[in-house]
Amino acid sequence: MSDLLAALNSLRERLKEIPQADERRLQELKTELLGRKAGALTDILKGLPALDPETRRTIGGAANALKRDLAHAIAARELELKRGATALADVDLTLPGRPQWRGGVHIVTQVVDEICDIFKELGFTRVVGPEAETERYNFYALNFPKDHPALDAQDSFYLGGDVLLRTHTSPVQIRTLESYPPPIRIVVPGRCYRRDPFDASHSPVFEQIEGFAVDEGITFVDFKATLAAFARRIFSPTTKVRFRPSYFPFTEPSAEMDVQCQICGGSGCAACKQTGWMEILGSGMVHPAVLENCKLDSEKYTGFAWGMGPERIAMLRYGIPDIRLFFDSDVRFLEQFIR
């Protein structure tokens, strides 16, 4: 019995070899110790029935405990080797891992979603409208005077008759007022068209996001606060904003919103023409004529509206120098904005 115990003890010593074994050595050890045909421990276990009950109990208990320990150690080492996490001194983990293609939505889409999400928190729902419009929706219901120089800035693509490609998302103001009662709080992303030549800073097709709120008691303070809150969210909480007089036929008072130049921080640089400010959006209080054109009582209801260009915001924020890059669809450009 004592030689059997000694044999078991010497086999237990072999446990120490297991954590150091490489894949091949581990297989050898497995066969040598636990192999069904000639494993050292298997031999002992096979001999058990021949022993007297007392010895059988002692040796059997020890042998089975050892078998369990060996099997555990081998399984643990096997797993370790399979994971390849350690010990494989000849694996150069500085080599790159196996890549996969990665997809992504367009950076302008990302910016549109981000802007709409910010306004969602401010209570605005997201709606859309047609890209081909009539002059009534695109101009006249929005209080553009007929034959007026204000139309010059809206050089349009015509499709026939008075049908044109919308020059801004503002027609959706009219379409919404015609279909829903106040309170109205909407943002309207969408493609717009102006007959500008395609160059670094102009595109005949561009994205715009309209915003529009109408209810009783909406004031210039609400208007400023909502847009300033937006600017601080999309840029930074400390971004300074300012509002300046402007002119749009469908807002009165009209304003442009500037934010502190995102490049120089306000000290003046070439990008902001030394003013320290960058124009972000055109806006104002809804002109009473717009409400009246939609049969709403302009004494009772007031509101505000704005329009901004996500491409321009993306250019400012990411330092993109040429608007045409958005449309080229060079995969090397698109891949830069995967996130």
Binding site: Y180, P183, V221, K224
Partner: peptide, 10 residues
């Protein structure tokens, strides 16, 4: 530019 309460839209 203080944010004041508003009614949700329709």
């Amino acid at each position: 530019d203080e944010l004041r309460p508003y009614r949700p839209g329709t």
